[in-house]
Amino acid sequence: MSVDASQFKNALKLWASGVTVVTTQSEKQGLKGMTATSFASVSVDPPQILVCLNKITDTGGALLESRHFAVNILTSDQQDVSNQFAGNSTQAERFASVDWENGDNGAPLLSRALACLECKVVQQIQAGTHWIVIGEVEKVICRSGEPLLYYNGAYRQLSPA
């Protein structure tokens, strides 16, 4: 018995997640970045994470070409950045209105992100419409703040204790 796509999407909307912008830079394709909520830790030793990227995205293609990327974990006041990197704007427009700098591996690091993880691709797995990309974390930058969350089709923030 197969689950229909709308049922599947409705169930996944009930999973609260943090919001990231995955960035890369390749020689052929230049700067690329996209909003992604499919992000998780994989291993502590060696330090590895995974991101899931739709195969049709230009960010995914550039990431697999460059073999380096960054995961920028957004703060609660970066909804506009999430929307900017999720929308139909050009890649140049996405990067034009956000402060960023090149990381050690060449991937763009968003200057106001809660955390930035610079990674090299160690494995890619094709799964349906997506690539599961496993990256070894080579450098981490952490800042203070609260995370941007996404739940049931809307941005959320942590409640004070």
Rank of each mutant, 00 (worst) to 15 (best):
M1I: 07
M1G: 15
S2W: 05
D4L: 15
A5P: 15
A5W: 10
S6V: 15
F8L: 14
F8E: 04
F8A: 10
K9T: 11
A11I: 14
L12R: 06
K13A: 13
L14Y: 03
L14A: 13
A16H: 08
S17Y: 00
V19D: 00
V19N: 01
V22P: 05
T23M: 06
T24K: 11
Q25C: 14
E27T: 13
E27I: 13
K28L: 10
L31Y: 08
L31P: 02
M34L: 15
T35Y: 00
T35D: 02
T35L: 02
T35G: 06
A36E: 05
T37Y: 00
S38K: 01
S41H: 10
V42T: 06
S43M: 11
V44N: 13
P46N: 12
P46W: 01
P46S: 12
P47D: 09
Q48W: 09
L50C: 09
V51K: 09
C52W: 08
L53M: 15
N54W: 02
T57G: 12
T59Y: 05
T59A: 06
G61S: 13
G61E: 13
G61Y: 10
G61R: 12
L63T: 12
E65M: 03
E65P: 03
E65Q: 12
R67P: 00
R67S: 09
F69A: 07
F69D: 08
F69P: 02
N72H: 06
L74Y: 12
T75Y: 02
T75E: 13
Q78M: 03
Q79N: 02
D80E: 14
V81C: 05
Q84E: 10
F85P: 04
S89M: 11
S89P: 00
T90Q: 07
T90S: 15
Q91G: 02
Q91A: 11
A92K: 12
F95C: 04
F95S: 00
A96N: 10
V98P: 09
D99H: 04
D99Q: 12
W100D: 01
W100S: 01
W100G: 03
E101R: 15
N102R: 11
N102G: 09
D104V: 14
N105V: 12
N105R: 09
G106S: 10
A107P: 06
A107K: 04
A107M: 05
L109A: 07
L109W: 14
L110E: 04
S111R: 15
A115I: 01
C116T: 14
E118Q: 12
E118T: 03
E118M: 03
C119W: 01
V122K: 08
V122F: 08
V122N: 04
V122Y: 08
Q123I: 01
Q123C: 01
Q124I: 00
Q124C: 03
Q124K: 08
Q124F: 01
I125R: 11
I125E: 03
Q126K: 13
Q126T: 12
Q126Y: 06
Q126N: 13
A127N: 08
I132S: 02
I132V: 14
V133F: 05
G135P: 05
G135R: 06
E136M: 10
E136C: 07
E136R: 09
V137F: 06
V137Q: 09
K139G: 02
V140L: 15
V140R: 10
C142F: 05
S144N: 14
E146V: 08
L149E: 07
N152S: 13
G153E: 03
G153R: 06
S159I: 14
A161Q: 13
